[in-house]
Design a protein around this nucleic acid. Structure first.
Lengths: 344, 344
DNA sequence: AAACCCGCCGAAACCGTTTTCAGGACGCTA
DNA sequence: TAGCGTCCTGAAAACGGTTTCGGCGGGTTT
């Protein structure tokens, strides 16, 4: 029987007992030898190390975890189907935790509450040390509950419950940054085209932009923010409308890079020089959209990696007993390209 | 002491022993009751179930795994920083494994062999049941070794070792599909602009395209495939060159959606009607690029989710002892939009 | 030579779960 | 009332590690 199976059965992974036997010591000694504990004779330690090497022993993290009460894993529960936010956040988290110290379970809930509950149960069953919940947009989302047995941080989309810990990009600041840059490059007649007004991101960016305009003693060109949807088509339509209304327009702030692409296309069609006559900016700094644009698109980067790192740090702190509550706003970053003039 | 700590220490998760004590039975009975084993009195079972419910008991999957020798986890090792491939593959895998049965560890190696080894060790330490390795492009990559203690499937980028199991998109077929579509819409003078010739994806798509042209009795317009890089800028440059060389050009097959965007821009600049005079197609079906294009871009979808599902299935089969070796090609899918005429 | 210390090793307990198996309670038949 | 079978229940072993602690052997001190 055993002979028959052994043909295609994978050899089970080496265990500490195997190492101990091979080295001619007890498991206890083997354990101490491999973990650098004191009171092990150098020769013994060497024998054990070699034995472990020989059968390529890898300690079973599960067994360690069950003792320690810590698994060294976190759950990253995302609703962001594109992975636009989740992956940089994953990378930031991996970095923050330190290479290989922590492993990340990634689950996609696809914006479905049932699936989300399901994944939560699975993750808790696996005894993750912490949880990072990534939303599909920056609108506040329902909390998973405050009685979760592990620290939980909401990234990108904050929790509605202020007792939770959330880390989100500072969209208001992003809007301000954008306007300040346009003003610094000498622009005065600035219009704003944005996405779906039901998104907090659209409203917040507009808020920041309007505040910066006022601070600069300017008024928004085109008498209102043109909210629509997050598409190139809307960018084109709104740009036509804005140009028709404001003859001396000299800059257009777009609510996303995608919208900005639509804007650039229309300006080109109309033969309007960018950035000499009209500057254009977007938000998100989505490389694929910004770098190939004509001219390359100045944008506001939301610093997702930093955000992920911070979220991971928050989880860590909570594990250390230093938990934080409330919403933390992460600063954004201006990335200047050809669609706005450099300098003043 | 205990009082002081209890203030900010999280209560450790409920254990089976807690449930048993609360229900006034032994752990063994509690286990059987909760797992639907036979030989448990209905009343007892109810008591146990209620107790478990009351303290919201979640069985410790680690402890179960250590017994069973199976963890119900797989490692997804990606090198795809964009997440363009990884996330659909993750979703496909999640689906294939069945909701919640398996959890996925996602690691990003960022195309760094050291980091990759590091992650592999971590994953093996966590005793993943299987491994899916996602490449950053479709070029064959070095194997992780055939002596891995767990079944490993290479997705998107095949392993150079034919004893490994790989699942990759059929780029040759994709090229053929594209040309067949263009020919079916009545196009005869078809040029091909593609990306970096060092990429297998570029070469394979061209191979399929040329084969389909020959099968249709046609020759490639522009006397050669214009390889360059995967950018809009190259798309624009090559399109100018192609148009200048071939006056009666009636279709351009682009090696990626991004290149196609460049092509569409130039055709528009030159006032050439798409698709009436010249049709345009891309590869990848990257929604963000295709849907906002003018006109919306016909493309070949690489079916990443299907690919992920299949990769997961392969891992499953290997766990059942039915392992497969060699490279499996997954079919692609034509998605028709406005940049090519519908029908014949 | 007795007492003592110190370095090294291993038996045993523990973590949380599942599973096997021995045995107790109870009802039925002879 | 003894004997038997049927249900339940719980003690114990197992999984793969870590840690505590007792003990052994050898060298140094009185």
């Amino acid at each position: 029987m055993s002979g028959i199976e052994s043909a295609n059965a994978r050899p089970r992974a080496a265990t500490l007992r195997d190492v101990a036997t091979l080295a001619g010591v007890s498991v206890a000694t083997a354990s101490k030898a491999l973990n650098g504990r004191a009171n092990v004779h150098p020769d013994t330690r060497r024998r054990v190390t070699e034995a472990a090497e020989r059968i390529s022993f890898t300690p079973n993290t599960l067994a360690q975890a069950i003792l320690a009460g810590q698994t060294g894993t976190v759950g990253l529960l995302t609703n962001d189907l594109e992975g636009r936010f989740s992956l940089p956040i994953l990378m930031g988290a991996e970095d923050a935790f330190g290479a290989g110290k922590m492993s990340v379970f990634l689950c996609d809930a696809r914006d479905d509450a049932i699936r989300e509950q399901h994944h939560i149960r699975a993750l808790l069953g696996r005894r993750v040390d912490g949880l990072i919940v990534v939303g599909s947009n920056t609108d506040p989302r329902a909390t998973l509950g405050l009685d979760l047995p592990v620290p939980t941080v909401y990234a990108y989309a904050p929790s509605t419950d202020e007792q939770d810990c959330s880390v989100v990009p500072d969209n208001v600041h992003a809007g301000t940054l954008a306007i300040e840059h346009l003003v610094a490059t000498g622009k005065r007649r600035i219009g704003h085209i944005s996405g779906d007004v039901r998104y907090a991101a659209a409203r917040d960016r507009a808020t920041g932009a309007l505040a910066a305009l006022e601070a600069a003693g300017l008024e928004l060109a085109g008498d209102r923010v043109r909210f629509g949807d997050w598409t190139e088509a809307w960018g084109r339509a709104a740009t036509h409308s804005l140009l028709d209304q404001v003859s001396d327009l000299d800059a257009i702030l777009c609510g996303s890079d995608l919208i900005a692409r639509g804007t650039l296309d229309v300006l080109r069609d109309r033969g309007i020089d960018v950035p000499a006559r009209v500057s254009v900016m977007g938000f998100d700094n989505w490389e694929i959209l910004t770098s190939g644009a004509r001219p390359p698109l100045t944008s506001i980067d939301m610093n997702f990696e930093t955000l992920g790192r911070r979220a991971a740090q928050r989880v860590f702190d909570a594990l250390d007993g230093k938990s934080t509550v409330g919403v933390e706003l992460m600063p954004c970053r201006l990335v200047v390209r050809g669609s706005t003039a450099q300098g003043a």
